[in-house]
Design a protein around this nucleic acid. Structure first.
Length: 489
RNA sequence: CGGGGUGUAGCGCAGUCCGGUUAGCGUAUCUGCUUUGGGAGCAGAGGGUCGCAGGUUCGAAUCCUGCCACCCCGACCA
């Protein structure tokens, strides 16, 4: 492994790529735009999954699984949905190969009568199924989630941030009335925000998308928006209020308490492996990945320092005692006893991989009855007496979790600007990318004009934006709250 | 799909303009010895369809033709 990585200042996107590859998170595969998630990266994703899954179940949801392939006819039932996804769908047209003149080839006799779409999202197959599940208000609500992969044929891809195939969860719920569906949409956005802030340690802004940025087929799209260290926004989770659009498209009606037929109300919500991108870009530094302790596959690593075999044995004895103490406290710990690498190499390696806490034990420590404890986020080191190790580490893990959140929040606050002049906006968003709070006249035309001229888009209309009379920075028309503009991933 | 670029050892590259030893360097790998409190040192070894297919030539990584792949920049997007 070559030493060091490109600094953020030097080349931010190269820095990102190097962290992904050198921290062993993922790599490109033989299929353009599709990634291999490596064991260390997948271990983080599993932790993300485990926690979200728990939160979904706590809010009454159940997991299920729907097919990967969707008949083209299902897909085309909801008009705006088709418009939104048509250009990035992979299509299955045949079901057999045969040996041909140039090796293996598609058997032209095995053409499918109806072509199948590889799901870019599952609303259509799910609503065609829900039709059979729902007759009465007694069948509602349906609160289902699925963990799955989806394919969107992206032209330009980046590991985790935009890949042609990605892993995600998609929740699909059905309700008997609008209020309940809207409440669900809100609830799940709150679940995402809580997860982002308390687990990923990434502060997010909750808000509504403008019509331009809405999910294809939704009446409302809510999102959580995070700010990355280069001043670009990353949409980190979305929750959609679908109204009765899909129920109408798939003819899903139920009989209410009064015996009247009505269409079912729907929501859908998802987060993806893109969260890994958020995690990386929010906290990491020029030495490598920085992981929040709550999601780190290895929370503590122990590096032995020794010359002779006797020294190694003595150090190991202490190390193994610490391992069992920490394990008893449910802290994941690795004792790196490889003899093939020297301590300095290991230090650098675990910094690159973002392990939150490192313990080094050598002969000098054994004499003094101490160990050296280093934290990844601030790089501070301290010597701690053997009797206080577990306690110190428990506190340290909490501190690190909190500290990286605070740091990210401070960065976001310092990179958020109120702006009223469009001229100023155009200049500043180039020089100092970040969140720009500005008045907007509410029209898609103005939003489009700003996008074309600056590449910045409205990330969301924040829920907590205070009422404030002002004037659209472009057209001068009246506006009563500020929206967030930023360049986005 | 438009514009630009690159394909040479696992990875990163030189060599290509101007054809000519056995295709080289860094790193990684393997072996041995010395090392081990911040990415070890020395010595030795292994590893190549030079993107693919044709052509020109006594001779092609190098020149010509066609094809393929990947990367960057745009249009589209979680």
């Amino acid at each position: 492994m070559s030493k060091g990585i490109t600094s953020r200042k030097e080349n931010y996107s190269q820095w990102y790529n190097e962290i992904v590859s050198k921290a062993d998170l993922a790599e490109n595969s033989g299929v353009r735009g599709m990634m291999v998630i490596k064991p260390y990266g997948y271990a983080i994703w599993e932790k993300i999954q485990a926690q979200l899954d728990k939160m979904f179940k706590e809010t009454g949801h159940e997991n299920a699984y729907f097919p990967l392939l969707i008949p083209k006819s299902y897909f085309s039932k909801e008009a705006s949905h088709v418009d939104g996804f048509a250009k990035e769908c992979a299509v299955v047209t045949h079901y057999r190969l045969k040996a041909g003149a140039n090796g293996i080839e598609v058997d032209p006799d095995a053409k499918l009568e109806e072509e199948l779409i590889i799901r870019p999202t599952s609303e259509t197959i799910i609503w065609s199924t829900y039709k059979n599940w729902i007759q009465s208000y007694r069948d509602l609500p349906i609160l289902v989630n699925q963990w799955a992969n989806v394919v969107r044929w992206e032209m330009r891809t980046r590991l985790f941030l935009r890949t042609a195939e990605f892993l995600w969860q998609e929740g699909h719920t059905a309700h008997s009335n609008m209020q309940e569906a809207l409440a669900e949409t809100n609830q799940m956005l709150n679940v995402y925000a809580e997860f982002a802030e308390n687990w990923l340690a990434v502060p997010v802004i909750k808000g509504a998308k403008t019509p331009n940025e809405r999910f294809a087929g939704a009446l409302e799209t809510y999102s959580i928006e995070a700010l990355m260290q280069d001043g670009k926004a990353l949409q980190s989770g979305t929750s959609h209020f679908l109204g009765q659009n899909f129920a109408k498209a798939f003819d899903v009606k139920f009989t209410d308490k009064e015996g009247k037929l009505d269409y079912v109300w729907a929501t859908s919500w998802g987060v993806s492996t893109r969260l890994m991108g958020a995690l990386i870009m929010a906290h990491s530094d020029d030495l490598g990945l920085v992981l929040p302790p709550k999601l780190a596959p290895i929370q503590v690593v122990i590096v032995p320092i020794y010359k002779s075999e006797e020294e190694f044995n003595a150090v190991s004895k202490t190390a193994l005692e610490i391992v069992s103490e920490l394990k008893a406290k449910n802290i994941s710990v690795k004792f790196d006893n490889r003899d093939t690498h020297r301590p300095g190499h290991k230090f650098a390696e675990y910094e690159l991989k973002g392990v939150p806490v490192r313990i080094a034990i050598g002969p000098k420590d054994l004499e003094k009855g101490t160990v050296e404890i280093a934290r990844r986020d601030t790089l501070e080191k301290q010597f701690v007496s053997n009797s206080n190790i577990t306690e110190t580490i428990e506190k340290l893990l909490e501190d690190i979790q909190k500290n990286i959140f605070d740091k990210a929040l401070k960065f976001r606050e310092e990179s958020t600007y109120k702006i009223d002049s469009y001229e100023e906006f155009k200049k500043q968003i180039e020089e100092k990318p970040g969140f720009y709070l500005a008045h907007w006249d509410g029209t898609p035309e103005t939003e489009e004009k700003i996008k074309n001229e600056t590449k910045a888009t409205i990330r969301c209309i924040p829920f907590d934006a205070p009422e404030e009379q002002g004037f659209c920075m472009v057209t001068g028309k009246p506006s009563n709250k500020r929206v967030i503009f930023a360049k986005a991933y």
